[in-house]
């Protein structure tokens, strides 16, 4: 295990768990200081969300080695990144096949024909930038309206799978 390796967290650590980083989550080693590694953890339920945290290397297991070209780009990227801005991962309460309802009227959904009160079915196992993929359907006709990404705060779960 070395700098820029991809790892997995092997234990539930209270300090990390309260920031939404849990056992089994994967990440990238961005700094090594003795036994303490700084890891950029990724949220497996929300692609695009990351949090930097220090963790003893005994709680990490090697997952994969980064591509050479990725390492080259990382070296430049990490010089300028403000790690203290990213400390928490959000918790996820959505599951594929959950029945949901849109609770807001917004142009970005209306443009696809989806309006407040419309119901749909979650079609993804993870979010992307806090947006879940949902198939909205008309009532009674069997037809779909649209398959779109909806921000978590814009829908409620009306029936869990």
């Amino acid at each position: 295990m070395k700098l820029y390796d991809n790892i997995k967290l092997t234990a539930e650590i209270a300090e990390l768990a309260q920031n939404g980083i849990h056992k089994g989550y994967s990440g990238l080693i961005v700094k090594c200081e003795g036994d303490i590694y700084t890891v950029c953890f990724y949220n497996p339920y929300n692609f695009g969300e990351k949090a930097y945290a220090k963790v003893n290397k005994k709680f990490l297991v090697f997952s994969s080695r980064s591509d050479k070209r990725i390492i080259q780009e990382l070296e430049g990227y990490l010089q300028n990144v403000k790690m203290e801005k990213y400390t928490k991962l959000s918790e996820c309460d959505v599951q594929e096949y959950d029945a949901v309802e849109l609770i807001v009227e917004k142009p970005k959904y209306a443009i696809a024909g989806v309006h407040k009160g419309d119901r749909g079915c979650v079609n993804s196992t993870y979010a992307i930038d806090n947006h879940w993929e949902i198939i909205f359907s008309e009532r009674g006709t069997g037809k779909d309206i649209a398959q779109i990404g909806v921000a978590r705060e814009d829908f409620i779960i009306i029936d869990k799978f």
Partner: peptide, 18 residues
């Protein structure tokens, strides 16, 4: 699998298009 997920996460971090 995990290796693909790791690479996609790292590229997303670097700003490559999802």
């Amino acid at each position: 699998g995990q290796e693909r997920t790791d690479a996609r996460n790292n590229l997303e971090l670097l700003g490559h298009c999802k």
